[in-house]
């Protein structure tokens, strides 16, 4: 039985989605206000943080494109389609905050690519698309987990961890939508 066969879990999902929005909004506010601290971040440390933010930004742009592909594929049915669009919206928020923060630090944000490659030939069903999205989201959790310790600015590390939490919720909900245990491990790596 899939995730969407359980009304109580749907309620839980909606609650989680609402909360994830609140968490990101808090981080976004933290990133975009009180920027005197960031402005004071000097030299190599700022350059390193800009590099981390830009790598994350590039991956976020790809995630946005991936969900766009999924939404336009004709393979996703409601309510899964709504879920994909919601998650894409989160990635757009991540990208917006990351881009603005790079600019605040005096860097040049990377641009989205004109075209992304996706394994289109292997995506034939809704489950294929969900599995693909889940793979990207799990990778995103690991990527942010690997990036957070590298930030020189601890406020940026906190914001990165906030995005990590959002990606982890995406991964868990996609797994549940696939009928898999949503949270298969106690620790992520």
């Amino acid at each position: 039985m899939s995730f969407f066969d359980y009304p109580n879990v749907v309620i839980a999902r909606r609650t989680m989605l609402a909360r994830s929005g609140a968490v990101l909004s808090g981080a976004a506010v933290a990133l975009l206000t009180g920027r005197d601290v960031l402005a004071a971040t000097a030299g190599d440390a700022a350059a390193g943080d800009i590099r981390i933010l830009n790598t994350a930004l590039g991956a976020e742009y790809e995630a946005i494109a991936a969900y766009q592909f999924g939404a336009e594929s004709g393979l996703l049915q409601k309510p899964v389609l709504d879920l994909a669009v919601t998650f894409q919206g989160h990635h757009k928020e991540h990208a917006d905050v990351l881009s603005k923060t790079v600019q605040k630090l005096g860097g040049a944000p990377v641009a989205a690519k004109a075209k992304y490659d996706f394994p289109v030939a292997t995506l034939k069903t809704q489950a294929d698309v969900l599995n693909f999205a889940a793979t990207l989201e799990k990778g995103a959790v690991s990527a942010y987990l690997g990036a957070v310790p590298l930030f020189a600015d601890r406020d940026l590390a906190k914001a990165g961890a906030s995005i990590l939490g959002d990606e982890a919720m995406h991964w868990a909900i996609l797994r549940q939508a696939l009928g898999m245990p949503p949270v298969p491990v106690a620790f992520m790596s």
């Binding site: 590039g58 790809e62 490659d117 690991s142």
Partner: peptide, 15 residues
């Protein structure tokens, strides 16, 4: 390898 798949794939370039 699933940890790498936010940015990498085997057979095509990504981030």
């Amino acid at each position: 390898y699933t940890r790498c798949q936010a940015c990498h794939a085997l057979d095509y370039n990504r981030t």
